[in-house]
Design a protein around this nucleic acid. Sequence first.
RNA 1: GUUCCUGUGGGCUAAUGGUUAUGCCGUCGGACUUUCACUCCGGAAAUGCGAGUUCAAUUCUCGUCAGGAAUACCA
Length: 515
Amino acid sequence: MSKVRVRFAPSPTGALHIGGVRTALYNYLFAKQNGGSFILRIEDTDQTRFVEGAEEYIIESLKWCGIEPDEGVGFGGEYGPYRQSDRKGMYAQYANQLLESGHAYKAFDTKEELQEARLAAEKDKKTFRYDISTRMSMRNSLSLSSEEVKELEANGIPFVLRLKVPENEEIHFQDMVRGDVKFSSNELDDKVLLKVDGMPTYHMANIVDDHFMEISHVIRGEEWLPSTPTHVLLYRFLGWGDSMPVFCHLPLILKPTKGKLSKRDGAKFGIPVFPLDWEEKDGSIAKGFREWGFLPEAVINFLALLGWNPGTEQEIFDLAGLVQAFDPTNINKSGARYDFAKAEWFNQQYIIATDNEALAAKVAPILAAKGHHPSHEKLVSICALLKERMGILPDFWSKGSYFFEEVKAYDNQKVIRKKWKLDRREAFNGLAAQLNDLEKYDAENLEQLVKKFMADNSLGFGDVLPFLRLATSGSTQGPPVFEIMEVLGKQTVNKRLEQAYSAFDEVIKAKLQQL
RNA sequence: GUUCCUGUGGGCUAAUGGUUAUGCCGUCGGACUUUCACUCCGGAAAUGCGAGUUCAAUUCUCGUCAGGAAUACCA
């Protein structure tokens, strides 16, 4: 078997969404597993849709995900250029070859004429198709006499080259996911091969490029399935039928409701659909997984399992593990819905698995943005306390801001109203004093001290701990209190206790007044 | 409309022509923690529908319905 060479071929029309990332990932996995090459080709044959920065975005996204191409735009290689606009000169030759061999023809129809034909068909509740049944009623080198064609050309009337699809032919091809797939040529339209501007269409360019880049497997989204028979025809007519790549059409990624996931869905559902932030033309920012606080390993793991399964019950895979376990025959046929909750779960797993030192580094920028620059040691110990409670990186702040800022509010007023007693204030003042006198201020000693305090005053855990929590963190939830106190330190805890006692008293006084 | 693709709990999925249809996420309950999370235990919940083949169908066939994709001088 010849060398495995696969390509990821996005068009630079905007941000890459996770469906594209998954396609890239599967290409990458298949290439690496077979000792082959993963190639990035930029399909920019439609110059009207070119978007500034999209190409860089794609490259940066792949890098962030850890699936760098071996060849391609930005990565070098022996089969370049890898940008279709840079290969512009190559395509006409092959389109003309098809013209000469009678597999293509010139079509002079204007946009308006085509539009008219479409409108006419619509009246009959049909869709116009430029194909064997209609081409003789259009203006092209098949329906016109050679004199007429010459005259049109002499007058500089622009034309496109269209594929002449043969009649009554059954076209078969093998698909790695779907097995034997067949189409009738009668259902195919005479696709434009070369546009008026001299640029090839996707169909033409991708066949020429795949051929010369010696692509062995075409792994792409299912939306290409219906045009694959046209591609098969092209390979055959160009004389490349024997070296045609194997096709592998991936199931679509579906949006949370119904339908194929699209770029707009991020804003619509309030979830990330792009790997990185993307700035739209109107200046709005579509938030990426990275900025959302996802780890790339988690995104990759999540995406890998969307439409594929390893055949075992293992769910957590690093990239190397995926390369090993990946098996295209286990790719599903049906579309997979994008479930954000599951993505978050994966991320949580990866955050928990990250050691505290590394997590501290990831979380530091979030704190810096809030104006806090804690010492590394402090950050590491807080990471240890918080990591199991984080789904995404910013949770570090939402669940741990009290480590860095004063407590502004106490979230569980109900507990205060029920359990705080004015006549215990003296005892609690005593506790504060004892805590202040504690020499070795660590969780273990704190716990001992507090337990003794409870025993001395005949108080239960429920009478004391919620207030320690509330006072120090503002919340009755979170990591073990004594560990919070240790990290906070004596001074801070004392200050917060004092403040809190008064605040608790106020709550009770307000309650008494109401009665 | 036409062509093609696809239908397993709420989501992602496993499985075999043959016990109680798997696992994960989510959800609910319990244990642990007097909290939350983690962890552990348990519950509810699925083969779209209808025929046919067969001793036996989620699996094979047909029909039907539903969803999706394609139907551009976009990719």
